[in-house]
Design a protein around this nucleic acid. Structure first.
Lengths: 207, 207
DNA sequence: CTCTGTGAAGAAGTTCACAGCA
DNA sequence: TGCTGTGAACTTCTTCACAGAG
């Protein structure tokens, strides 16, 4: 199964598998079957096995998967082994919440700087992180910072993206509710709260 | 095309279409073609036409779609026309950011109460919203509140879900990084920031 | 001639089912 | 026997391509 193209959906699930494996590791279990992991994550066992087999033979027939080995392999695939420096752009309500968010550290992300354009915010500290003027951004290129979190209003998100890409950013986690046009070498992952929200009423049983 | 099952992916895109149409409405345009909307949203025009045609004949051949009519029809489909009352559970960093989030109002959601279990937070106000004790939650049943936003740690998310469902909640927007087991009549939409984040490095070009 | 509506073809993703190794 | 690894079948989603309305 080595030479097949890996589906995007498989990559999307890998972090989920990490979370599931963490659960079994916390219980001091060294081994887990696709069935057990499937039950925990509410995904089918066949899908889990197929996902893993794109990358090689991770398991042992009759036994299952070694938890620690599998964690290591998935982290390797996702390139989570190397720590990554990130900046945050936009120190509004969401930006401030993200600065305090513990999930980043879990994947080896370190938010090393925060930027805003509001003179009221520039110079203040949030969670020990100093808010810097977005205009001083271009200086960061040398520092090995490759990731950015965009938490600014939609109207300015594209210009922020242009600016940070010029300054060396190669991966963006975008919370602004808009499409970002970027060069092919840059990857954008967007989280759009309003879009998710907007379809919730559709599924409500009509009273 | 009326009697075909509507794909989940179509429903997922409807809020996106609303946003696109808003853009054209803001420019005082009364008409828009699938092509123009497609360009703005970075989706294929054929997909947009197919999505719409599940619901009936929304457009005029040779002309396009009437912006205002289409907005009305999509809002109708998504059941966004009736205002919805929601509660927020979890007044941590993310919860506080969500209380200030303008996206809810845009879809007619009104956060009428916020709950937490931390005695330090109970009784304080965030953005004019008083934080109430989660233990007093069961009293809300009568108030026509059907939606909840869960922004609590993963460990307590399931018990929070059980509690609010018992008190009448039928739709949940879940920010806790865990699967929620709920009765069939309840719809959960989960937004998992860490999961999205975890696959970003995979796409980074190896330096 | 323009742009929608939509079957048919194609692509992507998931489940089935079972061979095969421990 | 137990559980993985994986083609094949199936399902779901997207694009193609074009008939047909305005």
């Amino acid at each position: 199964m080595k030479n097949t193209r890996i589906p995007d959906e498989t990559i999307r699930r890998l972090p989920l598998y990490l979370r599931g494996l963490q659960f079994f590791a916390d219980q001091e279990l060294t081994n887990v079957s696709s069935e057990k992991l499937a039950d925990f994550l509410h995904i089918s066992a066949a899908l889990i096995r197929k996902d893993f087999c794109y990358f090689g033979d991770f398991g042992t027939r009759g036994v299952g998967y070694d938890v620690q080995t599998l964690v290591k392999q998935i982290r390797e695939i996702l390139k989570l082994s190397t720590p990554r420096k990130a900046i945050l752009v936009g120190a509004g309500n969401l930006g401030r919440a993200l600065l305090a968010y513990p999930g980043f550290a879990a994947y080896g992300f370190e938010i090393v700087a925060a930027y805003d354009s509001d003179p009221e915010k520039i110079g203040t500290k949030i969670n020990q992180t100093l808010i810097l003027d977005i205009k001083t951004l271009s200086k960061l290129k040398r520092d090995g910072i490759g990731l950015a979190i965009i938490a600014v209003p939609a109207e300015v998100a594209q210009s922020v993206a242009d600016l940070i890409i010029k300054s060396g950013i190669r991966g963006i986690l975008n919370f602004a509710p808009t499409y970002l046009s970027v060069p092919k070498r840059v990857k954008v992952i967007s989280i759009d709260i309003a879009i998710e929200l907007g379809r919730l009423p559709y599924y409500l049983e009509s009273e």
